[in-house]
């Protein structure tokens, strides 16, 4: 069972000096918070805000190389959660074959947003992720922290 997820926002976590990408399903019932580094957060934020930087950033280059050979990003799938690390796969269509490539969710999401490809996750990952910790963390957040990167 897979569920389509949408990037709902990007929050800064001042305690860990990291960013959190918030993925939610269509009905806003399931949430997947994914902690990412600064560079990856900036790559995702540029795509969310439709900012085209003067020079291609790393994920723009990925897209340019795939476009150049007519390879199409079919989807990005968050496939697993093990020891607090999320795993993802990027599905590509090239020639007449499908390729499935191991990636960090941050790279997969940054590329999916640039190529208008859907993002999915599995029921298993949604069950595994324990959002209690995030909920506690969100309760401590000031309203002005939230919303800053929302789409």
């Amino acid at each position: 069972m897979i569920t389509q997820m949408h990037v709902r926002g990007l929050l800064f976590d001042p305690y860990n000096n990291a960013y959190i990408v918030i993925l939610r399903d269509e009905n806003n019932t399931d949430m997947l918070p994914i902690w990412v580094g600064k560079a990856e957060a900036s790559a995702i934020s540029f795509a969310l805000e439709h900012i085209t930087p003067p020079r291609p950033m790393t994920h723009d280059l990925m897209k340019a190389i795939l476009d150049n050979v007519d390879a199409k990003v079919l989807s990005a799938v968050v496939t697993d959660l093990r020891e607090n690390t999320y795993y993802a796969k990027i599905h590509l269509w090239y020639g007449d074959s499908e390729y499935s490539i191991d990636a960090r969710p941050s790279d997969a999401i940054a590329l999916a947003l640039r190529t208008d490809a859907p993002i999915f996750t599995t029921e298993e990952v949604l069950q595994k992720q324990n959002s209690e910790e995030l909920e506690r963390w969100l309760e401590n957040l000031k309203p002005e922290d939230f919303g800053k990167f929302e789409t």
Partner: peptide, 18 residues
């Protein structure tokens, strides 16, 4: 342990025979 962005880029070129 996990592929960084440029490892992913390299992986694309390898998988697609570039």
């Amino acid at each position: 342990p996990r592929p960084m962005s440029h490892d992913l880029l390299t992986s694309f070129t390898e998988h697609l025979g570039m």
